[in-house]
Amino acid sequence: MGWLDLVTNPQGLREIFGAETPPLVGVGLHGVEIDREGPTLRLRLDLPTYPSNPPVKWRRNGYNVVQVELLLGGVSDISIRGVSVNMLVDVDIKSDGRLALKISSPTLNMIAMATSVTVSKIDAYLDGGRDLWPVKDSGGGN
């Protein structure tokens, strides 16, 4: 079971990425917000891959990064160690009745327990530091 199978509303990302579930390794972490209502934990993440067939609006505007906002509900425990201004992290979401979130990098470690995870926002933008269109292997090489 992949991380997208644990999301309550995976349809939007599945429409955009098709059968290619975006990995949560080498993710750009832009923000973490904790709210007492719920309580909730909101994560704003730049996915490391771009869809092979993006929406027309994204293609027309030359976007090359997909940003998602994940909202964890029913948060019962959070532990955060470290911080940095440029955080590339690995995100792991598992479930055994409760959701366990683990975020790790050389500068940040975060663990949280929750009851649900929802995609609350999907957006795209142009990051000048990335290639405009990801190069796909044509299958002719090793």
Rank of each mutant, 00 (worst) to 15 (best):
G2N: 12
G2K: 12
L4S: 09
D5Q: 09
D5I: 00
L6K: 05
V7H: 04
T8I: 14
T8A: 11
P10W: 09
Q11L: 13
Q11I: 13
G12D: 12
R14M: 11
I16S: 09
F17H: 03
F17R: 01
G18Q: 02
G18D: 14
T21G: 01
T21D: 13
P22N: 06
P23L: 01
G28V: 07
V32L: 14
E33C: 02
I34C: 06
D35M: 00
D35F: 00
D35Y: 00
E37T: 15
P39H: 06
T40D: 01
L41R: 07
R42L: 05
R42V: 03
L43H: 05
L45D: 02
L47H: 10
P48L: 04
Y50M: 01
P51M: 03
N53C: 05
P54S: 02
W58Y: 12
W58G: 02
W58M: 08
R59K: 12
R60N: 11
N61A: 12
N61Y: 06
G62P: 01
G62L: 03
Y63A: 14
N64F: 04
Q67G: 04
V68G: 07
V68W: 14
E69G: 10
L72N: 04
L72K: 10
G73P: 06
G74P: 05
G74Q: 05
G74K: 13
V75N: 08
V75G: 09
S76C: 05
D77Y: 15
I78Y: 03
I80L: 14
R81G: 01
V83H: 12
S84M: 09
V85F: 13
N86A: 10
L88W: 15
V91Q: 08
I93Q: 09
K94Y: 05
G97I: 02
R98H: 04
L99G: 01
L99E: 00
L99M: 11
L99F: 07
L101H: 08
I103W: 01
S104Y: 04
S104I: 08
S104L: 01
S105M: 08
S105F: 10
P106M: 11
T107H: 13
L108C: 04
L108R: 09
M110H: 03
M110Y: 02
M110D: 02
A112R: 03
A112T: 06
A114S: 14
S116Y: 13
S116N: 12
V117L: 06
T118P: 12
L126Y: 11
L126T: 09
D127M: 07
D127Y: 04
G128A: 02
G128D: 04
G129V: 11
D131V: 15
L132H: 07
W133H: 14
P134C: 04
P134G: 13
V135M: 00
K136P: 04
K136L: 03
D137T: 11
D137G: 00
S138Y: 01
S138F: 07
S138K: 12
G141M: 04
N142H: 09
N142R: 14
